[in-house]
Design a protein around this nucleic acid. Structure first.
Lengths: 117, 117
DNA sequence: GGCGTCACGCACCGATTGGTGCGTTGGTGG
DNA sequence: CCACCAACGCACCAATCGGTGCGTGACGCC
């Protein structure tokens, strides 16, 4: 597994080494709802570029949190693995806290408008 | 509140805008156990530099997650605010996941040896 | 056949993050 | 008076991250 150190000062430090960065947990949170196509992820997270989405998905596959399924119609879909599913409590906790905190700070949470496909 | 956008695509994105970066959540996880002095934090997280610890504590104070208490003996102690306490579930979830995942991947979690003060 | 889409890769770049080294002020102890 | 500690700030730098722009091959559609 590339990039992992052999030793960490605490489990949170270790978690963040695997999950850190601007977009990984956002991607995982999307996939927590249901499996998604690449293009759906792209549209769901408009501020995230093509290049970084590909890279982050690759990294998440590499550590076994996400898997890709090539369908018959040639479209790739991504979903959480069992291991990735074990992150549900982390992702839900971040979601819940963010929601409450946004209400407190009057920050707007506005998913991008869905588009037909 | 510096740096916050007015709108986010989802609550997880918002959470990470406040909590992102290499050390904030590690610091918060330490303070979740109990209030700590600056020097104790420094020693508990040896890879974290003076400069960055000061900066991150400042930022966490600024968003109201941490407060500092100046004691009679002139030593400053840091602790989570009530708002910071609301992060317990996030921090505990990251801790638990990291612990389980480290066991799976045979990664060592080794807190720095405690020193007498 | 040409065009558009999909899902990538590559080169390059800007911004940010984190670290080092040094300095500061105030306090304490020898 | 000096040394050390605590808790910062500042300048500078290296590394990393994320984005842009462009290219690619495969595929589908007109």
């Amino acid at each position: 597994m590339t990039g992992l150190r052999k030793s960490y000062g605490c489990p949170v430090e270790f978690s963040l080494d695997l999950l850190g960065g601007k977009w990984k947990m956002v991607i995982l949170a999307r996939l927590k709802q249901n499996l998604m196509r690449y293009g759906e992820l792209r549209r769901a997270i408009p501020d995230l570029s093509d290049k970084v989405l590909t890279e982050r998905l690759g990294g998440l596959r590499e550590v076994g949190l996400v898997e890709s399924l090539a369908d018959a119609d040639g479209v790739t879909r991504y979903q959480l693995t069992a291991r990735g599913e074990s992150l549900r409590s982390v992702l839900q906790a971040l979601y819940d806290w963010g929601e409450a905190e946004a209400a407190t700070l009057k920050v707007s949470i506005r998913p991008p408008a869905p588009t037909s496909d």
